[in-house]
């Protein structure tokens, strides 16, 4: 996948996670990598940039295991940014789904359509 495109999507995912609750870095990485194929490599720079841009604040909190951890907390500015990205995303992905579903939604549907189309072209040719 195009790197820029992927980064944009991950930015949206990171923001979504922090809408739920404040989290520390490793937890964010862990949660995201459970669902999508990403690693720290991609996530940390995004986390840092969003913090620099004022979308997150950070604070330190003791952990049960010992050392304190840096927690990321969404700011008002972050919420607004998220809403704007979310709208962009919904309208984009909604459009994409509209287009790709025109060919059919499920595998069977698509295969059936393909078989039908093949038949049509064959009978046209004869």
């Amino acid at each position: 996948m195009n790197a820029q495109f992927k980064r944009g999507i991950i930015e949206l995912c990171v923001l979504s996670l922090l809408i739920e609750e404040d989290m520390y870095g490793y937890l964010i990485i862990n949660k995201l990598s459970q669902h999508i194929n990403v690693n720290e490599n991609t996530i940390y720079p995004i986390l840092r940039r969003l913090t620099k841009e004022g979308y997150f604040e950070t604070y330190l909190k003791e952990s049960r295991e010992g050392p304190s951890r840096k927690y990321y907390k969404m700011t008002d500015k972050g919420f607004k940014h998220y809403l704007r990205l979310r709208d962009e995303w919904d309208s984009f992905i909604g459009g994409v789904y509209h287009i790709i579903n025109q060919g059919g939604k499920k595998h069977e549907e698509i295969l059936e359509r393909f078989a039908r189309r093949t038949e049509e072209t064959e009978s046209d040719g004869s």
Binding site: Y26, N39, N41, T42
Partner: peptide
């Protein structure tokens, strides 16, 4: 901090490498 947390959670060396990736790439992105 992130690596320490990962170790505390019992990640193996191999899993760590996979999760953290390439320092060069992180540095370039940063």
């Amino acid at each position: 901090e992130m690596i320490q947390t990962a170790i505390d959670e019992g990640l193996s060396e191999e899993e760590l490498a996979k999760k953290f990736g390439d320092p060069k790439k992180i540095a370039e992105d940063l």
